[in-house]
Design a protein around this nucleic acid. Structure first.
Lengths: 230, 230
DNA sequence: TTCGTATGCGTATTTTTTACGCAAAATTAA
DNA sequence: TTAATTTTGCGTAAAAAATACGCATACGAA
């Protein structure tokens, strides 16, 4: 069998972070090529005999040095054959979350500039990266309701109000504080610690933590995570 | 920028059909190459400057001549770099449904042999195609509960018991006939026709049909499809 | 006619969701 | 110091949805 095919394979990562009641995405300023000075997603070409997931992790390390707490394949973009003006490239996009204590960026490793952009302040992007981001946001919104990924955007220990605000912010709707708390606690895998958070005013809040082992155990027993508030 | 990359891009389609209370997948017998006589998914290499979705549709037409009623991207398999023994190939897998009136196969177009295999009678497959199928079945099970794709596996008009059995078969659990009917009908987009189905015994059943326009309209108004029975 | 089988409609019970009142513990303003 | 303000934490009642199940109906077959 003789195959003559000249399509390049890239990976891109949409890295989400959450801080100060805002959802942000990590972007890289291109330093070379026709796209110099344009912002783009973390990503690059896959190497020969390199697994896709290894390629993403490599790019994440090389370009940002950041440690993601969640990573999954999002979608493969390859219906617009002219998405890259240079040649035919398909991009396997990945969806990543980092917890808010890891939000500080290390100095650039690869002579590139990485920066967080709030979701509603994304600059003009290279390629079809805005489409990719829109897809990722949509996935994040959906997943939040049937998978406990919100915890991957928070520090290990957090006050309940932070979790609640995270849901409000990302889902863009109001939530009844008391019912939300009741529901989450009824699951049994969010446990209180003995610590208290320090806030400017108001009653000090107990800090809680997500017990992943317990969540996994419950899941194996048939528990299905689901949060829906009208 | 100079890129030297030698990765091939393929597409594969997992085509589901439903008949006689059984879920089946369409497979193709390989006639050439090292994998001669092995069964494989519908698929092949993407052409230069060909959109991924066009490649899938082309392969579906060339290899099966079948008309799918639902098609979506499933997942891109590229973590096992040796999944194809010949060279580095990543495969963008698609998930397809055909309604049971289109289940009859046309004579082979491309000197290839296509055949339906019940989900529990899949033969040994080429490449990592069993893994791809497992992923697809898992997706089908999930989607069935939050998207009305069951209708894409049935003929235009069907008795309620067929829909109910489809859910039982795919989700592999019992459903209360009466509650299931009540719930589906409460949605408002499954309408009764004046026709009656002909069965061997028992009371003749009204035929129903899925009104897609109505479903789309409700969805735009905020309706969210969901079926969950314990 | 009677029996077996599958359809079609209804109602009661349980569980979950939703709405919302209010005390407690802190900071800030008076 | 005291009162006002803010945020947390707990509870209870009403509304809605899920579940369980009874039973008449309509056909073919014995």
């Amino acid at each position: 069998m003789n195959i003559n095919q000249n399509i390049k394979v890239a990976v891109d990562a949409i890295v989400f972070g959450y801080a100060d009641n805002k959802l942000s995405i990590l972007l890289i300023k291109q330093k070379y090529g026709v796209l110099k000075d344009k912002w783009a997603l973390v990503g690059g070409f896959v190497k020969d005999n390199e697994a896709l997931i290894d390629a993403v992790n490599r790019e994440l390390t090389e370009e940002t040095g950041i440690n993601v707490s969640y990573l999954e394949q999002l979608y493969t973009f390859g219906d617009n054959v002219a998405r890259d003006p240079r040649f035919h490239v398909i991009s396997v996009a990945y969806f990543a979350l980092v917890n808010s204590t890891s939000l500080i960026l290390v100095p650039d490793t690869d002579a590139e500039d990485a920066k967080w952009f709030a979701i509603d302040e994304i600059p003009e992007l290279a390629f079809d990266h805005q489409l990719i981001i829109d897809t990722a946001i949509s996935r994040l919104k959906n997943k939040l309701s049937y998978q406990p990924i919100g915890f991957d955007l928070l520090p290990k220990e957090f006050p309940f109000s932070d979790l609640e605000n995270l849901y409000c912010t990302i889902l863009q709707r109001e939530i009844d504080r008391r019912n939300f708390r009741k529901k989450i606690l009824s699951f049994g895998f969010v446990e209180e610690t003995k610590k208290f958070g320090t806030k400017k005013n108001g009653r000090p809040a107990k800090l809680f933590k997500f017990n992943k082992q317990k969540y996994n155990k419950l899941t194996k027993e048939g528990f299905i995570f689901e949060i829906n508030f009208a």
